[in-house]
Amino acid sequence: MFEPVMMKFLGIGIGETLYMTLLSTFLAYVIGLPLGIVMVVTDKSGIRPRLLLNKVLDVIINILRSVPFLILMIVLIPFTRAIAGTTIGPKAAVVSLVVAAAPFIARLVESSIKEVDYGVIEAAQSMGASPLDIVYKVLLPEAKPSLIVGSAIAVTTILSYSAMAGIIGGGGLGAIAINYGYYRYEVGIMLVTVALLVVIVQIFQETGMRLAKKFDKRF
């Protein structure tokens, strides 16, 4: 079962999985981070309350988050084709991964930022800080450790989603597990891919927690 061809396959699988996970996480943060900030800032008790905008975004995030990922991938096929030019392979999977992960990340960011003590925001306001100053100099730096923990959660969640993308031809370790383990009954291969996924998750999670601890000056 572990002939050189298979080993090469697994190597490519790891590469594709990392590519999908990291690129999707990055792009999902590009959308999710500002979205999360906007959610906090426009909240009823935020520094610039905009209730209508807040409600609209809230509903959109909830809708996207409540669609099961498998269904979302299928629904997004035309959209994926338009953006990535194809509907199979890692590049195509990135599109649905970003759409699924961005609202999730927005929620993570929102809850991290909401942990910042209101008193500190008030103190900044009393010094004449503008809302932009507060976002860049108070909310984000003060929430940094929590944001890092959130990113570890996000990256591991996206990793497991990327494995699911294997079902519709997404590539990566997930695709190998499904094609060999499920369709061809090669349980050994499936176990190896699962073990590899476990190791990757461990590495991401551990790195995230260590970074968060390193940056946290509260203790």
């Binding site: 008193g119 008030e122 103190a123 009393s126 108070v138 730096p141 000056k217 509260r218």
Partner: peptide, 15 residues
Amino acid sequence: RSMGMIFQQFNLLMQ
């Protein structure tokens, strides 16, 4: 900026 303020809970930036 010409009115400083201090608080019961200090409200320092922890980071």
